[in-house]
Amino acid sequence: MNTTSIMIVGVGGQGSLLASRLLGNLLVNEGYDVKVSEVHGMSQRGGSVVTYVRFGDKVNSPIIEDGEADFILSFEKLEAARWAKCLKKDGKIIVNTQEIDPMPVITGAAEYPHGILDEIASQGAFIDGLDALSLANEAGSSKAVNIVLMGRLVKYFHIEYEKWIEQIESLVAPKFIELNKKAFALGYNA
């Protein structure tokens, strides 16, 4: 099969690492060749962060560029717009509609473009937006935004629901398993 490319984008500290591990490990178990690329270090301090996940029969480059992503999973609204140029014409953006102000907005040097997703959508991009923060809180913790979004993303994959649950059980500390299962289900059914 051709390579499928997923970009996970967000703000440093939002938990995209767990999301990419969940995805990567399951895809390996499913027998795919998989590459996951992330950058650690200074950008993690509240900056814009990107993780690339690619899978297929044989994956070469670990990174994803303009017009190459089948999916963009965005943990924040502005970040979805920032990386939309990487989406394929027929790709899908799954986005947490939460707004997190970047420093230029905080200091008043720039304004947060609240309508930015409508602009991208008007160009013909497929956008699936959800309030993952509220759903995460409903599941029991604002930190579960990552798992809510994962639940939403995998709806588009042809992999059984139970397999995802097994991965969550193997990756997450025992006391957080129930919370994460609930968060995953809320995202999946949203």
Partner: peptide, 20 residues
């Protein structure tokens, strides 16, 4: 050349790393 897909005309503020 790679095909460009979706680019907003509205300026997107940068998000540099910050002190926690």
């Amino acid at each position: 050349e790679k095909e460009q897909s979706f680019t907003a005309e509205t300026a997107i503020p940068v998000r540099p790393p910050v002190m926690c």
